[in-house]
Design a protein around this nucleic acid. Sequence first.
RNA 1: GCCUCGGUGGCUCAGCCCGGUAGAGCGGCAGCCUUGUAAGCUGUUGGUCGCGGGAUCAAAUCCCGCCCGAGGCUCCA
Length: 627
Amino acid sequence: MEVQRLRILQLHSNFIEIEAVEKEIALAEETDKKKDRLEELAVLFTSVEEGDNTNVARKAMENTKASLDKLKVNRILIYPYAHLSNTLAKPADALKLIKEMEKVAKDLGFETYRTPFGWNKKFSISIKGHPLAEQFRIVTGDEAEEEPVSEALKAEEKLKSFWHILQTDGKLVPVEEFDFKGHKNLEKLAKYEIEKVRAVQQVPPHVKLMRRLEIADYEPGSDPGNLRWYPKGRLIKSLLEQYVTKQVIEYGGMEVETPVMYDIQHPSIAHYLERFPARQYLLKSDKRDFFLRFSACFGQFLMVHDAQFSYRQLPLRIYELTRYAFRREKSGELTGLRRLRGFTMPDCHALVADLDQAKEEFLVRFKLSKEILEKGLELNKDEDFELAIRFTKDFYEENKDFILSLVKLFNKPVLVEMWEERFFYFVLKWEFNFVDNLDKASALSTDQIDIENAQRYEMTYVDEKGEKQYPLVLHCSPSGGIERGVYALLEKAHRDSKRGKAPILPLWLSPTQVRIIPVAERFLEDAEKLMKEIEGHQIRVDLDDRSITLGKKVREAEREWVNYILVIGEKELSSDVLPVRDRKAGKKIRKMKLQELITEIKGKAGDKPFKPLTLPKLLSKRPQFAF
RNA sequence: GCCUCGGUGGCUCAGCCCGGUAGAGCGGCAGCCUUGUAAGCUGUUGGUCGCGGGAUCAAAUCCCGCCCGAGGCUCCA
């Protein structure tokens, strides 16, 4: 015999807003609270069926307790909801059981709320994106069995990953069988991705450095993960931003700017939000709810949606330096410049006609990204970063040669994650991962082939026959987050110092490239003349005019990682040879003519962007921001 | 969210276990020194000891509660 069952739809929610509109039945409860808003809770939409008894109600709450303990949720809202059943209990019985559930919930220690029974209500709800956020439970009288029919659980199945190393000869080796000799960082990346290795408890080196070098710092007056940038840090960050933008424009990116906030109700966006589990910053303006963007996708897609273009204009490349993108990561996940809630991300999309064009474009962007890391950040692929490629099994079977061509471009074995089925909106994705001093891996550059969003945003082009077609969309951040770039530079510098090398920033990013130190006050005037001359060549130079000892000035210049130090005194004024203390050359003092030094610096800086020093050039006029 | 650690002058930290009127170094400021490649000397300024409560004659120190931060875990398109 068919047993009647109590039905609960359990939704782990950011918030719910309820408004009781009008009474629907005579039995409706009185309520003094017509409107309510609750946050961070599980909402239990509950239908009581014919034949349910208090025993069922009790078991339902016990099951709920077991489920919610796993999610660490202790606040619940019991919401009588008739629409889950077509064999509803009589209102009087239902109300009785609802009240019983409420009582049991309180006994179990839940912070329990309930909406009034018998009302026509309206509500807005924001559901968390994680896999267990939505669950449907049916509780029977005798066994109280649980049948989780969660969509998300099915999704977890799809997500089953297989980890391999793909070698340059095309051989796909399971990770556990691969010999990592000579590939230590790749091993660390694999371990980090698969096992999530434990690190020693210590402050990451770059966090100390970012403060000591007056680059960036935590801002107690803001939300965690939103940093302040001191003049030197702003200079470095700004140069990186300019450089990446310049490279992307050369590649053909059309630079645009789009809003930082979007209406949560916008139909295309709402779907996209479901697919992106990161938590958002929400904000209210009048009666509408907005979220702060977590990438530049929306803005660019909405713009492209309204644009008119044909196959002749493909690939269509659109770019924004997203300042900022916001992701409300959990507080415990934030780390210095590695993981932030507000960050700067170059985001470049390319719309392409078909898979062949996608592949072609993908290779171009792969090379662009690699060049930005190698030439811009001066990272070395052989010791600083590793490639990971992720794809579905089907895509791999059909595109082996293409995937291998990426590996060959990288010319090193790469980490591969393969999925049985597609769950995300992309079929292929790669990232360059930096491995830091604590053996943590972080993605820098990335690109992916998206096969869903053209439809979702109704982005179409006109083909040769004059018919509308959906393009494929490539999503690329050619450098990764700019903050993460700075993180990588600092971690790399720290690694150098552990190996006995002087830590240093790439010359073109160094706030002070040349420091002039006069031996005594009477040489100040000549030192300033020298400074003006060097400055005229677009070189960042400053002057330590403080009345402290020479030794101390040299020490402080070295602690600031100044690239070249010039000490000026009697000897220098009577000859045209300068004693150049070169940090990169092991702090050796090199005898050079001024013109030789200028030529060397200009040569090393190459065609990178230049900005003048944004601090007083006299050290005596400079405030201290940190340490 | 969970676990761990922490919150004492601008910064880094000691003092707390074992209660008795707040310490050091760095920095800042004033002065001396005028310097030849990683810390010159002297003096001086600066602190509701995160917040609230409790027990005590007496709390930075003991007890309870809370807030904030960091790291780790979890999570991660």
